[in-house]
Amino acid sequence: MKLSNVLSIKNQVLLRELVVTDFKLRYQGSALGYAWSVLKPLFLFAILYIVFDKFLRLGRDIEHFPVYLLTGIVLWSFFTEATTNGLQSIINRGALIRKINFPKYIIVISGTISSLINLAINLVVVLVFILLNGVELSWWSLLVIPLIIELYIFALAIAFLLAALNVKFRDIGYLWDIFLQAAFYATPILYPLQMVIKESELAAKLMILNPAAQIIQDVRYVLITTDAVRIQDVVEGWKIYIPFVIIVVISVAAILYFRRTSKYFAELV
């Protein structure tokens, strides 16, 4: 994995073909096809909105709570999908790896890129809802782009680590499923962070250090409402950089581990 080769023309072509194939195959044989990438989060949103806004009445004091909720769900779905796809990617391409030598990281990247395309489609839906709700957008809203990049890097790093681990230990997929379930509730997606602060400030502080939480809250802040509690509202000083440090540490570990093990994928998958 020489850095100069990472995006050579040859590898770009291959990456493109793999992404296109993934995308074509994803909704093979379903009547609504690509529409499902939009419908899935919409239905989830409808269910959660009815449960949490109408019955449990969680978001009373937050402006535009339905869109706020939808944004969180869309971002979290991307994170789940990208890491899960990435995790299975190497195993799923086993037949290929055993027959031809090509950079293995292309497989992981292609697995996460189709999730990224889904995210883009979903964000368009979010944007429509934002406009329907009469939220005022400004130039500051463009900060959403670096935040999405941050989220993608975070998901990609985890995908690399898990994909390499999964070749050796096939339990990783199940463990990650359970972990994601727990993380979903440990991240302020369905409920406002204000609620947690009221109960326990320490818990809120710990929660916001999770890069996914930091990103979701920041996106809500720049896109929807200043009611969204950001990391700098909860912790002070250098601690606001902890999510970045976490991402960097996971990325470095993932690159080192993937480089070391990818040589032996062909005989293990």
């Binding site: 023309i9 040859k10 072509v13 291959l14 493109r16 073909e17 793999l18 194939t21 074509k24 290929l96 031809i100 090509f102």
Partner: peptide, 15 residues
């Protein structure tokens, strides 16, 4: 057709 392009990419051909 799609398979030709996919296989070609794996063999190192450009689009």
């Amino acid at each position: 057709r799609e398979n030709v392009f996919l296989n070609g990419a794996l063999l190192g051909f450009g689009r």
